[in-house]
Amino acid sequence: MFHFNDEESIYQQIADQLIAAIMTGTLAEGDQVPSTTAIAKGYQINPATVLKGMNQLVDLHLIEKKRGLGMFVRTGAQQQARAMRQAAFSRDFIKPLLQEAKRLELTNDQLLKLIQEATSSD
């Protein structure tokens, strides 16, 4: 389930990958999230690191702790995760794209044409 790289902290990668799993429905609303211990043992990671990533999702209200049972995906988490990713996409990609288009003095029609051309070449 998890794939790690050296570019960002492991706890952040855990959080991001759990968010992706929620967003795609791999972890459905109501599903139990793999335990901190299971993830830590399975990937040879410090349990505190795993817990730090999971606590981010608790803070974002994507998962909830049920005392004595574990952590579960909250109702509405998929839609919320998608909305979070859309906001990040706008912030990280769309706004910089529009800023560069403005610097290049591209009209909206020209920009749309470039996007359509790029899409059709895939």
Rank of each mutant, 00 (worst) to 15 (best):
G25E: 12
T26F: 12
I10E: 01
A118W: 12
A15M: 10
H3F: 05
T26M: 07
T37R: 10
I63Q: 07
S90N: 06
A21V: 05
K66D: 07
Q32Y: 15
H61E: 15
A38N: 04
A88K: 07
Q56D: 12
L97G: 03
A77D: 02
L27R: 06
L62C: 05
L27H: 06
Q32M: 15
Q79R: 15
N55M: 10
Q12F: 11
T37M: 09
K95N: 09
E100I: 11
E105L: 13
T49M: 05
T36N: 04
S121F: 14
H3W: 00
L51R: 14
A38Y: 05
Y43K: 04
G42M: 07
V50Q: 06
L114F: 05
L112N: 12
A83W: 04
N46W: 09
E100C: 11
D16R: 10
I19W: 03
L51A: 12
V73S: 00
A83D: 05
N108E: 06
L104V: 09
N55T: 15
L112I: 09
Q17C: 08
G53R: 06
D6Q: 07
A87V: 13
D59V: 11
M23T: 15
K52S: 11
A20R: 06
V33T: 13
I63C: 08
D109Y: 04
L62A: 05
F4R: 03
I14S: 04
L104C: 02
E29C: 11
T49H: 02
A101I: 02
T37C: 01
A48I: 00
L57G: 07
T26P: 03
Q78Y: 11
Q13W: 09
L69Q: 13
